[in-house]
Amino acid sequence: MATLELKGVEKFFGATQVIHDMNLSVADGELVVFVGPSGCGKSTLLRMIAGLETLSSGEIHIDGQRVDYQPPSNRGIAMVFQSYALYPHKDVRGNLGFSLKHDKVEKSEIDRRVNIAADILGLQDLMSRKPRELSGGQRQRVAIGRAIVREPKVFLFDEPLSNLDAALRVHMRVEILKLHQRLKNTMIYVTHDQVEAMTLADRIVVFRAGKVEQIGTPLELYRTPANRFVAGFIGSPAMNFLNADCKDGKVLLNDREVCRSTHPDGPTTLGVRPEHLQVDKQGPFQGSVQVFEHLGGEAFVHLNLADGQTMVAKLDGEHQFRPGDSCQLGIAADKCHVFDNDGLRVAS
């Protein structure tokens, strides 16, 4: 049970700054997801929290104690790696108990903790196997188990599901969520997959190029993204961005009013999520169907608008279009997002 606080954390590799003035406080028991495209510094920041990278400046506090000059083992953290990082020459039991044995914990206590972790993760039948005899999902469970036996204050996950196939990823995501509900530990989870971020997080931190773009709950990020980057990153399929005009407080697309905005007159960017669009004979989005993808319960329409812009809409499975058909879509005005020329969202 612990809080985590970053104060003005910065990191330079040579002359390149990879983390810019990072301030973040994570509450006790919170699961915070760092998300962003690859190379945005999220993994580096996690390694700094773990103590595997030094800080160029700033402070890290875990449970109120400054830890950034401490070695990793004294910080009260445990980390799960993308490649599992199991010791290949030790069996599952050896892998789970290795850190405790090294800490000179009593044998009975090691057995107790190893057994608890094995029960939680369903590893009891695999205890005497070597890592190479396990499947990807089992290996990842052992890696998580190794973190559990340390009884850390903070769990750190570095893209733990990236190496698993799609079905297993969904399964393990649920397992991690259950684990968090059961252990109620503070957790930091790094991923580049926005679906993982949305489903797991209490709060999401969106990174781009070493800077925080926005911090908020998944729904806050979805409903009120701070800027175009966050709006485009969160949500699948991604939000449509259309060039529009603003005139007298009205946002116009091909001279049809879509919504109202406080944006000053002039060109602007309109953001609409594919799932908020619906077929509407009076709607402002008119175009011809380029591609129609039917998934059974739902369907994606790729539209070519009159002015040449393209957009995607997610409709329910009732609809049926053929390429070349004309299609008219509408949206509720309060679901529209307007972005100014700097990409920042304009409050409606």
Partner: peptide, 11 residues
């Protein structure tokens, strides 16, 4: 990552 993991284990 294996070496890092050992570092976190306090070796």
């Amino acid at each position: 990552e294996i070496k890092d993991s050992a570092r976190i284990d306090g070796l």
